[in-house]
Design a protein around this nucleic acid. Structure first.
Lengths: 251, 251
DNA sequence: CGCGACAAAAGTGTTTACAAGCTTGTAGTT
DNA sequence: AACTACAAGCTTGTAAACACTTTTGTCGCG
């Protein structure tokens, strides 16, 4: 790895160019321009990074350089720092004093904590959802889970399968109309999203999970909120067992 | 309010003085000095603001000025902004473009959302706590709640009463050994802390809450984790009813 | 006496510049 | 040949200046 020995000229100028924000492709404007948009820029950056972490594009342990991200998104480094502060608060990244930020890692103990907490929150979610909207509004999801989803599993079409799950998730959460719960489930979702693709291919997990979801949906379809809650909690416990049993392959 | 008509000189100089960080009382050092401490400064600022909001020193709707806080804590404005970003993510403050940050307000709908979510999380908390530590370790709290706490209520010594509650809370949360749950309960706690002093003086609430807590503690003392969970949940529902019934006086 | 235009001031959002710390690569010594 | 010491550069932390927006106070007009 000894390398190159690039001389080292132009360091000042290079830094200046790198540190600066590359805005304004227009010609003569020398000022900042009319200010892009209110305060969405940092918010958008936060979301972009959350997405990137959830999608595993930035895997756990990956280093996040302030400069690198600032250049990529075309924002000043201070905004990247603000975003880091928010993400750290959310537990998605870890900041080490003069070393920068890395994507948070999960260890087996974290898995237990996540599933225990998720159990009660997901239970609450389906209970509220069942109570808040007409029973028939679950019919389409029930049909989906009883029909097409079965074939997705058999054929191993995991993308379609996950898409169906995402729908269930989205619909339930929206139906709760509870922003606090939504936020907490989102926070957990971000953490588990990293693993879902490994869990779903565990032997028998997709089939078992599907069976349990059908049961939950049937309870929701019939308006049995408390039953749906306890079925969903059982579902989470079952998922937890699976993950722990195969944890070597998941983490 | 027409006022003063201070001429307006020295604006540039004033701003410069205000915007700058007032570090280093020493004499001739012209640079930043040896860098105070790693990266605790922003973290400390976040905690200080959380505390201030929880204690109602900055009541809901209060404006938080970047400059003001920067001067008060002796940190640069960028750090205040980073702290704001974290607090916003936590839902403790609201940032309005170009207008600054205000302490988040609660409306009646938020109360419902908080109590629904709190119900399942507090239930999980006492269940895990019961499972994780020896039964006898709850004896002292049970004794406290059966004896001294009763007299606090009768005498109207709310400070001592709240102190007892805080102990129960702290002990339960620690016993769960679940950082994620801890974080979520903390997040909720910060929001309700604003109201607790108004709730506790509602007619009959302190007595009823105490009765319910004794029941929960007895279940914990006997190692009945599931029973403790359902009693705690019932306790939260009861608290929610009380708050909603008297919501005009609480909010 | 009220009401609307205008201008200054206050404060937020953004950018640039500089200083300190960690990393890495190289050279010199044992 | 391995190990330590040192120096350069890259990255983070901090400071300060700049640009834009909102607010507020005043003055002129109806």
């Amino acid at each position: 790895m000894a390398g190159k020995a690039i001389p080292k000229a132009a360091s000042k100028a290079a830094l200046r160019a790198a540190n600066a924000t590359p805005r304004r492709t227009k010609a003569g404007l020398r000022t900042t321009g009319p200010r892009p948009q209110g305060r969405n820029r940092t918010g958008a950056l936060i979301d972009a990074l959350r997405e990137r972490i959830a999608r595993h594009e930035a895997p756990p342990g990956a280093k996040l350089g302030e400069l690198e991200l600032a250049l990529e998104f075309g924002v000043p480094r201070t905004q990247v720092r603000e975003a880091f502060s928010a993400l750290e608060q959310r537990g998605l990244i870890e900041r080490i004093p003069n070393r920068g930020a890395i994507v948070a890692r999960l260890d087996p103990a974290d898995l237990v904590h996540i599933y225990d907490t998720r159990e009660v929150l997901e239970g609450l979610c389906v209970r509220l959802a069942t109570q808040n909207v007409p029973n028939v509004s679950w019919q389409d999801l029930l049909t989906l889970f009883k029909g097409p989803m079965q074939t997705y599993v058999e054929k191993g079409d995991f993308d379609a399968f996950l898409e169906g799950y995402a729908q269930f998730r989205t619909r339930s959460i929206e139906a709760t109309r509870n922003p606090l719960l939504t936020q907490m489930l989102d926070s957990i979702y971000e953490k588990t999203q990293v693993l879902i693709r490994r869990i779903i291919i565990l032997p028998g997990r997709a089939q078992q999970g599907l069976r349990e979801h059908v049961a939950v949906l049937e309870a929701m379809r019939r308006g049995k909120a408390d039953l749906a809650e306890s079925l969903r909690r059982e579902n989470m416990r079952s998922a937890k067992d699976w993950v722990l049993r195969y944890q070597k392959y998941v983490l």
